[in-house]
């Protein structure tokens, strides 16, 4: 009896977890193992190239490491964050970064959408336009900044020369604290816009034709079709575009470094440039890392908030 009951319980116990085991096995079957095996080298490279610097930077931001005293210990808790955040230049740079990112992303999106809509109606020469549009995108931001620095040179640059030719006064594009910010934003929009155009144009091309045909039959005007059909249907693509560009812009470093070195004064000092100053001019890699982590936090927060707003509207 006892033997039977033991046998029964053994059988029962061996049967009970079977569904979980099976599910796990199903999830990690041979096919999926092959998939992981293929992905593993890539993941390892990512872990080394991205994960290690990120972790190292996180450790630095809590350590007393400076280039003058290159030792991770002692750890100093949040002291570096407090030191960075008690610097008025940090708050000025943070505000400037947010303002800069919003302005450039809005500019890129509005102009980019307009051009994408125009290209959507062009059929024959569209490939040519796309080819031309990829030129700024293919250029490195440093090259773009150097080219524009020459073009905007106030005394010998071509832009002021052309303005003079049509009777307009020469402008101090990068030397005026008021204009430098807008000049930098305009250059950024010029370069980044092509990416936005390409993504939005691809999104527009993939929209179904039926709703438009129905709207035309119902007598909807073009702007009504745009407002009530195009925009809502384009929203997922537009959202991704905005998020990618927002992340790009929040990280902007090359343009202020080459164009203005953060000046005049601090009128173009964005947060990434502030972090660079702390790390390489101040020789405080720990404080530079803290500033970089704060920037990362801002990027993550803005991305999450953006997606949350998007989901809520949906």
């Amino acid at each position: 009896m006892l033997a039977k009951s033991t046998e029964t319980s053994i059988v029962a116990s061996s049967l009970e977890p079977a569904p979980r085991k099976l599910a796990w096995r199903a999830r990690f079957d041979r096919r999926s193992r092959t998939g992981w095996a293929f992905a593993l080298p890539g993941l390892l490279v990512l872990a080394i190239v991205m994960g290690f610097p990120l972790v190292y930077s996180a450790i630095l931001s809590f350590s007393s490491y400076t280039l003058m005293r290159p030792a991770l210990l002692p750890l100093v808790g949040f002291d570096n964050f407090v030191s960075v955040m008690s610097d008025p230049a940090f708050w000025a740079a943070t505000w400037l970064t947010v303002k800069y990112s919003i302005i450039t992303v809005m500019g890129e999106f509005v102009i980019g959408l307009g051009i994408a809509l125009m290209l959507n109606r062009t059929v024959k020469t569209r490939p040519l336009y796309f080819a031309l549009l990829t030129i700024p995108m293919a250029m490195s931001p440093v090259s773009v900044a150097l080219i524009w620095r020459m073009l905007l040179q106030p005394n010998l640059g071509i832009v002021n020369h052309l303005l003079n030719q049509i009777g307009l006064p020469a402008m101090d594009w990068l030397g005026s604290p008021e204009l430098a910010f807008w000049s930098m934003a305009a250059i950024d929009i010029w370069q980044q816009m092509s990416f936005v155009i390409l993504i939005l144009a691809a999104g527009l091309a993939s929209l179904p034709r039926d709703p438009y045909e129905a709207a035309e039959i119902d007598g909807a005007r073009l702007w009504q079709q745009f407002w009530y059909i195009t925009l809502p249907m384009l929203r997922p693509v537009a959202a991704i575009t905005v998020v990618i560009q927002l992340i790009n812009e929040l990280r902007t470093y090359d343009l202020p470094y080459v164009l203005t070195k953060g000046g005049p004064g601090t009128s173009t000092e964005v947060l990434s440039f502030f972090a660079y100053r702390k790390a390489f001019l101040g020789l405080s890699l720990n404080e530079g890392s803290s500033a970089a982590f704060i920037l990362l936090l801002i990027i993550l927060t803005m991305t999450v908030v953006f997606f949350w707003l998007l989901e809520r509207r949906r």
Binding site: Q153, P154, N155, A170, D172, W173, G175, P177, A180, T260
Partner: peptide, 8 residues
């Protein structure tokens, strides 16, 4: 100075 001295 010249115009643009602050970025020169």
């Amino acid at each position: 100075s010249q115009q643009g001295a602050l970025s020169a």
